[in-house]
């Protein structure tokens, strides 16, 4: 089974900070990592290959330094890596990104399955999987948490996580699956493979817009349908009143405050709170 895995380089989100004055992301010194869900997608692909044979291609769109995660993917067991990198791809929304990835997958041509992460931690959109599936005209299963080896009848069984349980879906191949962390435990890249992945003859290709036959106006910012017009720091701030005193007093004050706001807690009957107050 030949599998294409979509991987994205993202900032290590736990470290992201905002400039308190401008409200902008401070990106300096922030590490970049392979998007966590994509790691699980890659692991799933490598396991399928190990069980059934075939080839795994890791595909990413991003700036030149994103080649790091492509090498890492090879370290984790991918056979080949492709990085789509071109200034024309910059500023893409999910529409333009799915066109770009879709064109590259068409060029790869030989595949039975496309795996991607459910969502990337920078944009959190979870849109790329279904949009690539639609671009390619393939069925999709999102929130995949388990995959059974492909069957002889050309279908695959996928366990799909739902909000209050799960579904078992039998899906014809080729198909696009989006993978969640529950799928597996990921492995560390093998050092030997990593070294090979960074060597000169490494099986990593860089494709630009012309390589995938993308026209200006189809990709990047110019090919996007949505645009960010403003970013700002999330509003926090309520006027906080700190309640002071010993525990008994604090709780009493609190219950009075709640009553002032007409927040009737079923346990706190009107008057009862007042009584409590009088006793003190």
């Amino acid at each position: 089974m030949d599998i294409v895995v979509l991987i994205k380089q993202v900032p290590d989100s736990t470290e992201v900070k905002l400039d308190p004055k401008t409200g902008h992301l401070l990106r300096e010194g922030i590490g970049s990592i392979m998007n966590p869900d994509d790691r699980h997608a890659l692991e799933a692909a490598v396991r399928l290959k190990e069980a059934q044979g075939g080839k795994v291609v890791a595909l990413s769109m991003g700036p030149a330094q994103a080649v790091d995660i492509v090498s890492e993917a090879i370290g984790m067991g991918a056979d080949e890596g492709i990085l789509l990198s071109d200034s024309a791809f910059a500023g893409a929304d999910t529409w333009a990104t799915s066109s770009t990835l879709g064109k590259a997958i068409e060029k790869i041509a030989k595949y039975d399955l496309v795996l991607c992460g459910r969502q990337a931690i920078d944009g959190d959109t979870a849109q790329i999987g279904p949009q690539v599936a639609e671009y390619l005209g393939l069925p999709q299963v999102t929130y995949a948490c388990d995959i059974e080896a492909a069957r002889d009848d050309g279908t695959i069984m996928v366990k799909k996580r739902g909000e209050g349980g799960y579904e078992m879906v039998q899906c014809p191949l080729p198909a696009v699956l989006t993978v969640i962390a529950e799928m597996n435990r990921t492995r560390y890249p093998a050092i030997g493979r990593l070294i090979d992945a960074c060597a000169e003859r490494a099986p990593v290709q860089i494709w630009n817009a012309a390589d995938i036959g993308a026209k200006t106006g189809e990709v990047g910012l110019a090919g996007s349908l949505t645009h960010v017009i403003r970013t700002f720091a999330p509003k926090g701030g309520r006027r906080t009143e700190m309640l002071e005193g010993d525990t008994g007093t604090v709780v009493r004050t609190l219950l009075e405050k709640l009553q002032e706001k007409h927040l009737v807690l079923p346990g706190a009957q009107a008057g009862a709170v007042g009584q409590e107050g009088k006793k003190s």
Binding site: T240, E241, T247, V250, L255, V273, E276
Partner: peptide, 25 residues
């Protein structure tokens, strides 16, 4: 910063006291 009321204290004391006073009510 995002609270209307803040109680600085050990929840193991505050919550039982809150429960006690509510029950008494």
């Amino acid at each position: 910063q995002v609270a209307d009321w803040g109680i600085r204290g050990d929840l193991r004391e505050v919550i039982p006291e809150l429960v006690r006073q509510l029950k008494r009510g």
